[in-house]
Design a protein around this nucleic acid. Structure first.
Lengths: 338, 338
DNA sequence: CTGAAAGCGCTAACAG
DNA sequence: CTGTTAGCGCTTTCAG
């Protein structure tokens, strides 16, 4: 098995021309006699030559590749975002390295630095950690970074695209209150996660605007795993004055909560609004009312911002906020105590 | 803004040592005086030096990167597979380029060749096309490729990991027949897709084994879009002797079909078995019986096979088949004409 | 229109 | 233990 590929030199030798002439043909540079060019093309064909972009990059500087760091490709929210980034990259003739941080700051750092060592032109980062000082030398060296879904940690000023987490959560709770609920629980993601905090803030704002008390016992923040969610729900429903409605903090938590409630033989149905839309929400009984984010738009916006910078745009870091949309489907319109 | 990064040379000059010494320190090679090493490390820190892996690769041959081509990262089946490939790659200190072919053979080809031009060490390909002759020179040049979910086109012999599509579909139809059904429809994916054909074959085998006739009017193959699926279902249900049960050909088709049926006010409930498990199948009413594939295992197996080859394993192309598993949940156990 | 020489940043192979 | 030299495959620069 051939273990070494033909190089431009081999092609040049085979076609009886100089290296540079091959380079011109391969890159469609003007100023090559068409007969010569044809001879080169035949040699390329004959040898199965294919340009080594690694060497090209070394010489030219730009790698025409970017890195994308998300939490988990297998999560539908991030896979939508991923696909959008990929599409924008493709339109810019750029390849994408993808990596999942699994919500681990150390892993995020490793991935980012590995991408930087490959000299990606830029990065789209959904950060897991809150300390991004490790990025400072990279940014100083000209690598551009755009943060998506969550902002960078303190001390780093970079372009950022976020959803309106607070406003979204607020509108969800307002919706429940408008339907007569006074005891609304919040089942949120781990408190360390930026979006979880923002959504909790929105929850509180809605209560305050309606002059309802903030009752800590109605709030349960943590991972979206089944055990923890089921435990939290059990506790909530056993309260002396239990909630009649529930806001769940993200798509995964919503699904886990629905599953837990389903197997709990709840005394009276709980009204539910979920943060994040999800597939089949419309087919459940009742259909699930959600606050929809737009992961595709999030990814597209972040990637476009990145390429905007890569094409030379200067100016201060931008901060874009994307709207959310409440989609009433039934579960959020249930009256209390029905 | 600094547009050029410090190189090993800069570090060497700054530390007052030779280039090679820096290289030794950076790569943790033994045989450097610890005082010298410390001086070098300080210079690295001072200048914010980071090794350029592109240059390293050019010199060493291996890029420690692989390419992954799937149909669409945003599809849960492929995103599970993706994540599994990424995890295996990580364990092998390898980065992953990801690209979506969108079921377009030309796009698949472009992506693969772009990855090859970056000199990835290997590829995991879920092929969209059926002609892979474009890969021959790449394979000859030593790039390893493993096909997943679908085999390569005729004429190319490469490692392949498939699911038991035929057996899975057969077991699904057998299940329906065992529950008393005699008129079972098949709503499959576009006939050009490999897995769609295999599943159709399994459907036919089950009918034959039960001595039931194969009725073409009960089969509808095509894209999983809503319009086409709804039209197919309308036609099926208007048949003089309509089906009492339905096998759907993949996850997306199942969901679309459920949605269509839901809005159709069907005369009597249709028993349904879906190929592919999907999130929330257990929470629908009735819960959906499925033939589950294991996308994570598919991805893991393919990636492990790839790294096995990359570590020097020879021998003929392997062909691995993964089992499927029928998960009864309710929809597939409905009796006919209920 | 074509080519020779230099060098991108690094590692391998040898000296000292 | 440290340094020198060559060269990975390509593009850039400058001469013919």
């Amino acid at each position: 098995m051939a273990v070494t590929r033909p190089t431009m030199n081999d092609v040049a030798a085979s076609a009886g021309v100089a290296l540079k002439t091959v380079s011109r043909v391969v890159n469609n540079e003007p100023g090559v006699n068409s007969a010569t060019a044809e001879r080169v093309r035949q040699a390329i064909e004959r040898l199965g030559y294919r340009r080594n972009d690694g060497a090209r990059v070394l010489r030219r500087g730009r790698t025409a590749s970017i890195g994308l760091i998300i939490e988990d490709v297998a999560d539908p929210f991030y896979s939508g975002l991923s696909r959008a980034v990929e599409d924008v990259a493709r339109r810019n003739d750029t390849l994408v390295f993808t990596g999942s941080s699994a919500e681990d700051p150390e892993r995020e750092r490793e991935l980012v630095l590995a991408f930087c060592a490959r000299r990606v032109d830029g990065l789209v980062i959904v950060p897991a950690g809150s300390d991004h000082t490790y990025l400072v030398p990279e940014l100083a060296a000209g690598i551009r970074a755009v943060f998506a879904d969550r902002p960078p940690g303190a001390g780093l000023d970079a372009d950022t695209v976020l959803c309106d987490n607070t406003g979204g959560a607020r509108s969800g709770v307002e919706h429940l209150i408008a339907h007569g609920h006074r005891r609304v629980a919040f089942l949120g993601d781990s408190p360390g996660i930026f979006t979880a905090g923002e959504r909790l803030a929105g929850y509180r704002q809605a209560l305050q605007a309606a002059s309802l008390p903030y009752d800590e016992s109605l709030v349960a923040m943590g991972t979206p795993g089944h055990a923890r969610v089921a435990a939290a729900l059990t506790r909530l429903l056993a309260l002396p004055d239990p909630p009649t409605a529930l806001l769940t903090g993200n798509g995964r938590t919503t699904m886990t909560a629905l599953r837990a409630i389903n197997s709990m033989a709840a005394p009276s149905p709980l009204a539910i609004v979920g943060f994040d839309d999800f597939e089949l929400a419309d087919l459940l009984t009742p259909a699930v009312t959600v606050i929809a984010q737009d992961p595709v738009r999030l990814g597209r916006t972040a990637a476009e911002l990145l390429f905007h910078r890569l094409s030379g745009a200067g100016g201060p870091a931008e901060r874009v906020q994307l709207p959310t949309r409440l989609i009433p489907r039934g579960s959020g319109e249930l009256p209390p105590g029905s």
